[in-house]
Design a protein around this nucleic acid. Structure first.
Length: 584
RNA sequence: GUCCCCGUAGCUCAGCUGGAUAGAGCGACAGCCUCCUAAGCUGUAGGUCACAGGUUCGAAUCCUGUCGGGGACGCCA
């Protein structure tokens, strides 16, 4: 149920008729001819660009086509105030009863309202966070986590079959370094060494906890053993420990991924060899020597023949190495194996959410997915820009080396998971984000979490009041469903209704663009109109939602209030944020 | 040197994939509480959409170039 979709369909029906009876040339592409809310609500309630879009291919003047459409649409019983405007827009209004009736599905469907079948159950894999298991999550990771999870929720709402996935980078040098660093902390926990962490080890204090946990579990078991014995078990132990923290932090944000894929398991299962096979079959692999990188030149650069993937065939800038000089696979080779695995699990559409520092990696990975799937699968990459933490406008220094980086759990403890989630979604993923700790706690219009939650709480407050002191008015959805709505006539009421009715459209366009932040802005907009209406009731008491002595009016307004709360809750659900019943 | 992202009001940012007179918040200024939560609301001021070309009925949006900011550039992940 999406009014704009319905009218787009009708309009295209008329256009097809015109093509059939020769008033328009046959074979026109109608896909760009749509019915939308106009940019400026003052113009009309509905608007179509059809005449302008079709003018050129039809060889007719926009206003001429618009005129024909106007005539056709004039026969629709609900359409009124039809007019051709500007360069060829066709504008019209619907009778208020159409908008009022559109409120009912909101109450009937509850937070399911806005769901779409656009995705048609197509499987989509969204991979996000995928932080190295070498330390706790930072604020930077949180952004990718939140964006990825909200995107997954959005696509689900839009009818896709979404899998939420985390790729554990538990292979390679970094986790070996983790194991060695853990060993030092383990000795420290047993009182053996002063904790002086040499160069080349992870200095983070958090590893003390891992060392102690290990000592508690295994006692002195590893003390006399050589590295070759303890490396693997300590690595496993540390990774499991830290993944536990990570999952815990994610849970506090309401994020639960369905699948955790282990890089090491994939490699050990021979997934990289399969990649090589596929590449060889398609002649996409060769041994060659790369030119040294321009600009910042590594000191130890020497030309060396390497095993290369022909990424340039798929739009990358250079071919990419698959093997390190010690003979082990590059991260890229492993990652190819992982994405091949996702493809073989049935995902033709894959989305990865990465940090800004991986921007240079996008082309090669997209190339890889195209190559490995022979063009059947496509990878989209959402790059998340940096988060700048401030407090009262003053930047907080974040340095991993100095150990003063802000751990995600500290941020959550200070401002709460919901605030973290919502604020991280108030910017597009590819724009930098300022996160002000004071703002996140502020209870003002400046703080979008609060502002949107307040709208929901206010709505619920009205419904509570109605339930307490209004004879003849029921607040149950089934009872509200039968209520007459004609008394909703104020222009601000109708304007709020039109905004609520746009919700399914917002879901679809946001999902199509893979931009969850649009939901945040929409919810803010809904909140603003609701607060506005509320406050008008201060002066104009006849506009208050609850009208003693007028049960019909009160009931109709309760439908609107309930619908507002429902749409807000439906949006927050996509974000994994709990709508609050009241503010404390 | 190459590639990617960004540049919109004093500040922080939207702008529905090319539409009509470019919109919010903050800050500034002027107002609104006997009353469903003033934790809110209303109004005013503020713009060469970085710049220059191009594409077209129409450009903040698409293309090219320039300037400015950020990120990336074999054997880290």
């Amino acid at each position: 149920m999406n009014l704009f979709k319905i009218y787009t369909g009708r309009l295209r029906g008329f256009l097809r008729q015109m093509m059939n009876d020769g008033r328009l040339p046959a074979g026109l592409d109608l896909s760009r001819a749509v019915v939308q809310p106009p940019r400026d609500e003052a113009h009309a309630e509905m608007s179509s660009n059809a005449a302008m879009v079709l003018a050129k291919p039809a060889g007719r003047k926009p206003r001429e086509i618009a005129g024909m459409l106007k005539e056709a649409l004039a026969g629709e019983p609900q359409v009124r105030d039809l007019e051709v405007a500007g360069p060829g827009f066709l504008n019209w209004n619907l009778g208020p009863e159409v908008w009022l009736e559109a409120l009912r599905p909101i109450l009937r469907q509850g937070t399911a309202y806005g769901a779409s079948d656009m995705g048609a159950g197509i499987p989509v894999n969204v991979e996000y966070v995928s932080a190295n298991p070498t330390g706790p999550l930072t604020v930077g990771h949180a952004r990718g986590a939140v964006i990825g999870d909200a995107l997954a929720g959005l696509l689900e709402k839009a009818g896709y079959d979404v899998t939420r996935e985390y790729y554990i980078n538990d292979a390679g040098n970094q986790v070996d370094t983790l194991a060695r660093s853990t060993y030092l902390r383990y000795r420290e926990a047993l009182g053996l060494d002063e904790a002086r962490i040499p160069e080349g080890f992870y200095p983070g204090e958090y590893l003390k906890d891992v060392g102690q946990a290990l000592a508690a579990r295994d006692g002195k078991r590893w003390l006399e053993e050589p590295e070759s014995v303890w490396l693997a078990p300590l690595r496993t132990f540390a990774i499991e420990e830290i993944m536990g923290w990570i999952k815990n932090d994610l849970a506090k944000l309401g994020i639960r991924q369905n699948v955790f894929s282990s890089e090491r398991s994939l490699v050990e299962a021979g997934a990289v060899d399969e990649v090589l096979q596929v590449l060889e079959q398609r002649d996409l692999i060769y041994v060659g020597t790369l030119d040294p990188p321009k600009g910042k030149q590594p000191e130890d650069w020497e030309p060396r023949p390497q095993t290369l993937f022909r990424a340039t065939r798929f739009g990358d800038d250079i071919d990419r190495p698959l093997k390190k000089s010690d003979g082990s696979w590059t991260y890229f080779a492993n990652d190819m194996a992982y994405h091949l695995d996702k493809y073989r699990r049935g995902f033709r559409r894959q989305i990865d959410v990465w940090g800004a520092d991986h921007g240079g990696y996008v082309k090669r990975m997209r190339s890889a997915v195209t190559a490995l799937s022979d063009g059947e699968a496509a990878l989209e990459v959402k790059i998340c820009q940096l988060v700048k933490l401030t407090r009262g406008g003053q930047p907080l220094r974040m340095s991993k080396r100095a150990g003063t980086f802000v751990a995600l759990r500290d941020l959550i403890d200070e401002v709460g998971g919901d605030a973290v989630r919502f604020i991280m979604l108030t910017r597009k993923n590819d724009a930098p984000l300022n996160f002000d700790l004071d703002k996140a706690l502020e209870q003002s219009r400046d703080n979008p979490v609060f502002y949107v939650q307040y709208a929901h709480a206010r709505a619920m407050s009205v419904i509570r009041h109605a339930g307490e002191g209004f004879a003849g008015v029921s607040t149950d959805p089934p009872a509200l469903d039968g209520v007459a709505l004609e008394s909703l006539t104020d222009s601000d009421e109708l304007s709020l209704i039109r905004l609520l009715v746009r919700w399914p459209r917002v879901v679809e366009s946001s999902a199509e663009a893979a931009e969850p932040h649009r939901i945040a802005f929409y919810l803010y907009d809904v909140a603003a109109r609701f607060h506005g209406l509320w406050t008008r009731g201060k002066d104009e008491t006849e506009l208050r939602f609850l009208q003693p002595g007028a049960p019909e009016v009160t009931a109709a307004r309760l439908v609107l209030v309930k619908a507002t709360a429902t749409v807000v809750a439906s949006g927050l659900q996509i974000f994994g944020v709990q709508p609050v019943e009241e503010l404390r």
